[in-house]
Amino acid sequence: MVNTSGGYSAFSLQEALELRASQDVIPYAGGTDLMVGKHRDADYLFLSRVPELRQITEDAGYVRIGAAVTFSEALASPLVPQLMKEAVSGIAAPAIRNAGTFGGNLANGSPKADSVLVEVASDAKLRLVSRSGERTMDVDGFCLGRGRTALRSDELIAEVLMPKQSPDCCFYEKVGGRSALAISRVSFAGIFDTQDGRISNIAAAFGAVADTVLRFRQIEAMLIGRTIEEARALRDSYVAAYAEQLVLTRGRVSAEYRRAVCLNLLNAFLSQCGL
């Protein structure tokens, strides 16, 4: 007897997009999140053998990480930025990193996704594809909170575009309940760069503390274009602006704890930047 329930396997991106458009399927890359929940009546669309989704490539502006690339594969790639490697090396444990993917981390829509945090801090983009075309969007804005994303029902995430940059300073801290197999309780990624003595980028992203990864560009703007001296003078009001904006939710830990740790990490980041 041949049972035909439970899923489809795609062997090319075109096949995958056809299935995605024509069937009611849940894209399945690594399975580490999907298999925890109960999707008893769902058909999966298995993507792990779609070559277009398994590559890490680069062009002039971006390192392009395929959606079905696993965290372990990224760690082994010379192309993947160090900050991203730092983040994914702290995800769960080897068996999970061997399965979990960049696309899955995004599509799961969790603010605790460690790779998404770095993508938001890095101004990464996503290439979303469907049978009818493709679009590119900022990662910041893709996740809408509580498992919802901007992905349309006929679309697949094709790749993550990490801008090529070599900033003056990168900062990453994952705060979990233990050293491995830990879901982030607070996570923070910061990127700092100067050009001609003036701050050209000071990105600060906070993970696991609200419905989505948080980044406050209007606060960052306070320091953009400033000299280090000027920024030092503004540091207190800069931190105070975050303190006001960081309205956090409680989860496994209290909102007060999250807020205190966010501010500690922000301060540590600023100090590391020399501010």
């Binding site: 439970g6 489809y8 399975g31 999907l34 298999m35 925890v36 999970i96 399965a99």
Partner: peptide, 22 residues
């Protein structure tokens, strides 16, 4: 429930059968 799939350590509870083809 860890097993090796193509030499890599995986938790078999988090693997759907469709993903083990081949």
């Amino acid at each position: 429930c860890a097993v090796l799939i193509d030499g890599l350590l995986r938790n078999s509870c988090c693997v759907a059968m469709g993903a083990v083809e081949g």
